[in-house]
C-alpha cells in the first residue's frame, strides 16, 4: 500500500464546549502517513495529542476538516460503520492498558476476534500467535491483576494486533511503566513496524520513546510543527 496514505488529515479543527465557551484545541491539522510508517506525535500536555488519535480512530468527530483512514472517509460513517471500521483497521493501545479485569490475558486478546466470523479454533490460533509475538505465551491464563504493568501492556498490544489491523494507535503506552518495561514495549513496537510492516502512530511525552519512531511530529497550540531543538536533542540520544 505504498502510494495512497493510510492516514490523511486535512484542515482538521476540533474545539470543545466548556460551559458556554468554545475552547479550540486543534486549529487546522494536516497529516499524512503512508503504509509502514512509524510516527511519533509529541507535544505538551493538553496540546491535543489524544484528540488527534481519537479522531483518527473515529471515536471522536472533528469540528471541521476531512479525515480519511485506510481509504474511508470517516465523516460520512455512522456509529455502527465506525465500529466496523475500527474492528477491521484500527488496533488501539492505551496508557492504562484497559484490559477487562474479569478476563484472562488470552480471553482479552480474543475479544476483538469475537467480531470476526472466525471459528473458535481459528480464534485460538490467532490468539496464540499474537501472544507469541509479544512474548506472553506463558502468561496466557493469567488475569490482569496477576500481571506486571509491562506484561499487561504487552497483553494489550497483543489484543491490538490480533486482528492484523491496518493501523496501530498507541496513546502513551509507556507512560505508566518503569524504564525497563518501557524499553521492552518500545522494542516491541519497533519490531511490529520493522518485521510485520505495521503502520504505527505513537503519542508520547517522552523524547526517548519518540526516538524509536521513523518520523516525529510536534503538536503545539493546536497546530503541527517541527520538533523544537530541545526535544530533538533528547530524542536522538
Amino acid at each position: 500500500m505504498g502510494t495512497s496514505p493510510v492516514v490523511s488529515l486535512r484542515h482538521v479543527t476540533k474545539s470543545f464546549r466548556r460551559d458556554t465557551l468554545e475552547v479550540p484545541v486543534l486549529r487546522g491539522i494536516d497529516l499524512e502517513t503512508s503504509g509502514g510508517d512509524f510516527v511519533a506525535l509529541m507535544g505538551p500536555s493538553g496540546s491535543g495529542k489524544s484528540t488527534v488519535l481519537n479522531l483518527i480512530a473515529g471515536i471522536d468527530r472533528p469540528t471541521s476538516g476531512d479525515i480519511r483512514v485506510a481509504g474511508s472517509d470517516l465523516a460520512s460513517m455512522s456509529e455502527t460503520d465506525l465500529a466496523a471500521f475500527r474492528s477491521r483497521h484500527i488496533g488501539f493501545i492505551f496508557q492504562m492498558y484497559n484490559l477487562i479485569p474479569v478476563l484472562t490475558a488470552e480471553e482479552n486478546v480474543a475479544l476483538p476476534l469475537l467480531l470476526t466470523p472466525l471459528s473458535g479454533k481459528e480464534r485460538r490460533e490467532h490468539v496464540r500467535t499474537a501472544l507469541g509475538v509479544v512474548g506472553l505465551t506463558d502468561r496466557a491464563k493469567h488475569f490482569p491483576r496477576q500481571l506486571s504493568g509491562g506484561q499487561e501492556q504487552r497483553a494489550a498490544i497483543a489484543r491490538a494486533i490480533v486482528t492484523d489491523p491496518t493501523l496501530l494507535l498507541a496513546d502513551e503506552p509507556t507512560g505508566d511503566l518503569d524504564a525497563t518495561s518501557a524499553t521492552e514495549i518500545l522494542e516491541l513496537l519497533r519490531r511490529l513496524n520493522a518485521e510485520y510492516g505495521k503502520t504505527i502512530l505513537l503519542v508520547t511525552h517522552d523524547p526517548r520513546a519518540a526516538g524509536y519512531a521513523r518520523t516525529r511530529r510536534f503538536l503545539d497550540k493546536g497546530v503541527l510543527g517541527e520538533m523544537p531543538a530541545s526535544y530533538a536533542a533528547s530524542a536522538s540520544r
Binding site: A57, I59, E79, T80, A83, A84, F85, R86, S87, R88, I90, F92, F94, N98, I100, L111, P112, L115, R159
Partner: peptide, 14 residues
C-alpha cells in the same frame, strides 16, 4: 470505561 474500551476495539454500539 470498559464499555468505552470495547467500543474503541470496534464493538458495535448495539
Amino acid at each position: 470505561a470498559e464499555a468505552a474500551v470495547l467500543r474503541a476495539l470496534g464493538f458495535p454500539p448495539a
